[in-house]
């Protein structure tokens, strides 16, 4: 493929990935890696590097809006970032020690979890008003805007949340995704933050988490500019358009399309691994 064809095709595909990622709330990462590996024949090591760069672009763009609107819990974000960035560095080190097939298998698991989360969004939990000692020490309890004005909430199970965040950071670095699903799961389900606060704080943390491992991959030469530049630009453009149209369209049928795509990518990736590897 000539550079012109490669770049233009990759740019258009990444716009689609960013658009879908923004509409389903799953980010572009889960789509970008299979896209690069399965359709563009790019080595998994380059794919992970480029995907992480795109993840930083889309999350920084979206995080700006959420922070301004006052949803993001900055203290929770910073505190848990200790766990996510540490996990990311550990993940990047592990990535250098295991085979590409092992990474691909972890990725397939991440794909199936994404598909499941897309189709079955969790039912909202009632707020937990019990005070929590660690949360009090770190002053994590806060308020967030709703239609009825500012509503106060409490934060719980910080150590458990931190442990899950370490795992989220490792997964993010290993397979080149934002692992927003794991982050939202930790904050919404375990730490009992309101859902909107969980998703926006997750977004806030994703850029920092991906920056930690992207730095390591950059030094290893896994971030190839001719791949990373069109992927990051395309995904950013697609996610900005996606965020614009999101309030105006129904995403239900789109979620099925996304889940089907993700499952297909997972099966195809698994097939390649079984047929002698990537």
């Amino acid at each position: 493929m000539t550079a012109l064809t490669f770049v233009l095709l990759l740019l258009s595909a990444s716009i689609g990935a960013g658009f879908l990622g923004a509409l389903t709330g799953l980010g572009g990462g889960v789509v970008i890696v299979p896209l690069l590996v399965l359709l563009f024949g790019v080595d998994l090591r380059y794919a992970v590097g480029a995907s992480l760069v795109a993840v930083i672009a889309t999350s920084s763009g979206a995080a700006a809006a959420y922070v301004r609107e006052g949803y993001t819990n900055i203290r929770v974000g910073i505190l848990l970032e200790v766990a996510t960035v540490t996990g990311a560095i550990v993940g990047a080190i592990i990535a250098a020690m295991v085979s590409k097939n092992a990474i691909a298998i972890v990725f397939v698991f991440a794909l199936f979890w994404s598909a499941y989360a897309t189709l079955r969004p969790p039912a909202p939990l009632p707020p937990d008003a019990e005070p929590d000692a660690i949360s009090k020490k770190f002053r994590l309890d806060s308020t967030y805007p709703t239609k009825e004005g500012m509503v106060a909430y409490r934060v719980h199970h910080v150590p458990l949340g931190g442990l899950l965040m370490f795992g989220a950071g490792m997964l993010s670095a290993l397979v080149g995704v934002g692992s927003g699903i794991v982050k939202v799961f930790a904050m919404d389900r375990m730490m009992r933050l309101p859902f909107k606060v969980s998703t926006t704080t997750s977004n806030f943390m994703i850029g920092v988490t991906a920056a930690a491992s992207a730095g390591v991959y950059l030094q290893r030469g896994q971030v190839e500019p001719a791949i990373a530049a069109p992927v990051a630009l395309g995904a950013l453009a697609g996610s900005l358009v996606g965020a614009r149209v999101l309030p105006r369209i129904k995403t239900k049928s789109l979620r099925y399309v996304f889940a089907a795509l993700v499952v297909f990518a997972g099966i195809e990736m698994m097939r390649r691994v079984l047929q002698g590897g990537l």
């Binding site: 493929m1 012109l4 024949g41 790019v42 730095g215 290893r220 500019p225």
Partner: peptide, 20 residues
């Protein structure tokens, strides 16, 4: 400048642009 160049990323060779 490089639009006609043939790109092949099937095998991993560390890129030369690799430090801040």
């Amino acid at each position: 400048n490089d639009s006609a160049r043939t790109l092949d990323f099937r095998t991993f060779n560390p890129t030369e642009h690799s430090s801040v």
